[in-house]
Each structure stands twice: as structure tokens, then as C-alpha cells.
């Protein structure tokens, strides 16, 4: 099973004066390394600050685009991992080991497999083709 670990940080969270980025990078690096060494990490990315992003709001037509962060959000997504484990509990164990502090959270969600959807649906059929194209068009990383 695949699980996505979604890192969420409160909007108003401020960093202390003596905040040591190197320490965080080292702790996260060690965590990522432990996931790789255990053979469970499939992928993951960190996200740039929400101010660099923007929000597309579908309340009106056409949708309205505003600069980020999303005004009503209490938490911001700051990164994610995708891991492959044999049980939900194993995913929870890995999530608990993430070097995060008070205020931050990991939301853990199972990644659906395309086999779970109506296989006769035309777009589910097409999705297989899209996945194939997306898969083979991407360069192989050495």
C-alpha cells in the first residue's frame, strides 16, 4: 500500500530568532535516509513558501486567481512523502518518526490505486493510457 505523508504547518507559526536551519536539514536528511535504507520511500518533495504560490477559487465563474497564501487557511502544506508499506500501522510508525515539532502535523492518507475505480468507465480506461504516457515521457534519473 502507498501512503502520502502530508506535512502541515500553522499559518501564524513564527520561527525563533536562533532557529537553526542546518539542524532541521540534517534531521530531515537523516529521516529521509532512514526511509530509503528501509526500502519504503517512493518519493517526496518540499514546497516553497505559500507567498510564492497562488490560489484558484472556484466560487465564481470564471475562477478567481489570488496570490498565496490562501487567506482563510489555518494551516499550510509544506511538503510530502510517498511511502510504501505493508500495513496502515507501519505507515503510522514511519510518520511518528518524522522529526517535526509542536504545532506541525503530518496528515497520512492512503494513495488510491486505479484498480479501485469502475474499470468500465471511459475515463478510467483513458487514465491508464495517460499514466503510460506520463510514465514513459519522463526522463530516467541516473
Amino acid at each position: 500500500m502507498k501512503y502520502m505523508l502530508i506535512m502541515r504547518t500553522p499559518v501564524e507559526m513564527t520561527l525563533p530568532e536562533d532557529f537553526d536551519f542546518t539542524e532541521i536539514i540534517n534531521a530531515m536528511g537523516a529521516y529521509n535516509e532512514s526511509l530509503i535504507k528501509a526500502g519504503v520511500l517512493l518519493g517526496g518533495e518540499g514546497l516553497a513558501p505559500a507567498e510564492e504560490g497562488f490560489v484558484v477559487d472556484f466560487d465564481s465563474t470564471p475562477p478567481i486567481v489570488t496570490d498565496g497564501p490562501y487567506a482563510e487557511a489555518k494551516e499550510l502544506f509544506t511538503g510530502f512523502w510517498i511511502i510504501q508499506t505493508s500495513t496502515k500501522e507501519e505507515a503510522a510508525e514511519w510518520a511518528k518518526r518524522c522529526p517535526l515539532g509542536p504545532g506541525t502535523r503530518l496528515e497520512v492518507r492512503r494513495v488510491t490505486e486505479i484498480e479501485e475505480f469502475d474499470q468500465d468507465n471511459e475515463y478510467i480506461q483513458k487514465e491508464y493510457e495517460w499514466r503510460e504516457q506520463l510514465g514513459t515521457d519522463q526522463p530516467v534519473q541516473g
Binding site: 491508464y128 493510457e129 499514466r131 503510460e132 510514465g135 530516467v140
Partner: peptide, 23 residues
């Protein structure tokens, strides 16, 4: 086989591992 059902992310991971071996 319906090749669109192959796991293309997994194919990428396999090719990347082969590239690591070759490298």
C-alpha cells in the same frame, strides 16, 4: 497484456536502478 496497465512509476524506478548499476 494491456500495456497501459503496467505500473509506469515502477518502470521508472526499475530503469533508474539499472542506470545506477550501469553507471
Amino acid at each position: 497484456q494491456d500495456r497501459s496497465r503496467w505500473d509506469h512509476h515502477q518502470i521508472q524506478r526499475g530503469r533508474a536502478a539499472l542506470a545506477r548499476a550501469d553507471a
